[in-house]
Design a protein around this nucleic acid. Structure first.
Length: 246
DNA sequence: AATCAGTACAACCGCCACAAG
DNA sequence: TCTTGTGGCGGTTGTACTGAT
C-alpha cells in the first residue's frame, strides 16, 4: 500500500511563500503537481498553483478597488455572468479569485440594494439613468474594454518572428484569448494575426540558459515543455520579497 | 477584558476540458 | 475510443480580523 505523502493545508506561511517564489524564480513553472516536491513544500500542486496565481504572482494589485473597477465588474457580471476568469482578463492585475470575493462580499449586496431601490421607485427610470454620471462613466469604460483592438505584428516591426517560439500558458495568453474572441466577433483580427500575437507573448516567456541538472531528477521530462522564463517574471516587488531571504 | 457577530479574504473542493498515450 | 494526468474554473468553506456590546 502506497502511503500518501503528508500534505499541509490551510494558510500559507511566510517561509512557504518564499520557497515557492524562490523556486519559480529559479526554475520557472514546469509541472504544478511535481513542483512542490522539488521546492521542498508539503503542499498539493493545486494549492501551490492557487497561491502563486492569486497571491504571489508579480504584478498583482490587491484590495482597494476603484469606483471604475467596481462599475466595470458590475457591468461585466451583468453581461458575462459569473465568469470570473473572463472578467479578470478585462481587469489588469486583478485575479479572478479577488474579483469573485469582492463581488460576493460587497458588490452583490450593493447591486441587490440598488435593484430593490429601483424596483420601488417606478417613475424616474430611463432618463435619470442616462443622467447618472457614474453609470455613464462605467459604461464608457466597459465599452473601451470591449472595443479593445489587439495589435498586429505590424505594430512591432522590431520583433520580426524568426526566432524559435514556444507558447506559454500564462495570463497574458488568457487575456489575448479573450481579446481575440472579442476581436474575432467584431471582425477585427484574423486568425493568422492571432497566432502571431500569441507567439509574441510566448517569445518573452520561454526559458533560456537554465541549469537543468539541478532542477529536478526528471528535468529531462519537462525540458521541452513551454514554461515561464525565470527572468521574464522578474519584478521589483518580488525582488524585494525574495532577496532578503536568499 | 471577554465575548459575540459580522465581514473580508484566503484556500479548498469538485467538476470539467483538454492533451497525450 | 478509452484512460489518465494536468490545469483551470466557480462555488463554497474556513479563518482571521474588527467592531459592538
Amino acid at each position: 500500500m502506497v502511503r500518501q505523502p503528508y500534505l499541509k493545508k490551510g494558510t500559507w506561511s511566510h517561509d512557504e511563500d518564499q520557497k515557492l517564489i524562490a523556486y519559480i524564480r529559479k526554475y520557472g513553472i514546469w509541472n504544478w503537481n511535481q513542483m512542490p516536491k522539488f521546492a521542498g513544500l508539503q503542499r498539493s500542486g493545486k494549492s501551490c498553483r492557487l497561491r502563486w496565481m492569486n497571491y504571489l504572482r508579480p504584478n498583482i494589485r490587491r484590495g482597494n478597488f476603484s469606483r471604475e473597477e467596481d462599475e466595470t465588474i458590475i457591468h461585466l457580471q451583468k453581461t458575462l455572468g459569473n465568469r470570473w476568469s473572463a472578467i479578470a482578463a478585462r481587469l489588469p492585475q486583478r485575479t479572478d479569485n479577488d474579483i469573485k470575493n469582492y463581488w460576493n462580499t460587497r458588490l452583490k449586496k450593493r447591486v441587490m440594494g440598488e435593484k430593490k431601490n429601483s424596483s420601488s421607485a417606478t417613475t424616474e427610470t430611463k432618463s435619470s439613468m442616462e443622467e447618472n454620471s457614474s453609470d455613464a462613466d462605467s459604461s464608457m469604460m466597459v465599452d473601451i474594454l470591449l472595443d479593445y483592438q489587439i495589435p498586429t505584428m505590424d505594430d512591432f516591426p522590431e520583433l520580426a518572428a524568426d526566432t524559435t517560439i514556444s507558447l506559454s500558458d500564462c495570463d497574458l495568453s488568457v487575456a489575448v484569448d479573450d481579446h481575440y474572441n472579442m476581436a474575432m466577433d467584431n471582425n477585427l483580427v484574423s486568425s493568422e494575426n492571432y497566432w502571431e500575437i500569441e507567439n509574441l507573448w510566448g517569445q518573452s516567456l520561454t526559458m533560456e540558459g537554465l541549469d537543468c541538472e539541478v532542477m529536478s531528477p526528471n528535468s529531462q521530462l519537462w525540458l521541452h515543455e513551454p514554461i515561464y522564463a525565470c527572468d521574464s517574471y522578474y519584478d521589483p516587488v518580488v525582488e524585494l520579497w525574495v532577496n532578503p531571504f536568499i
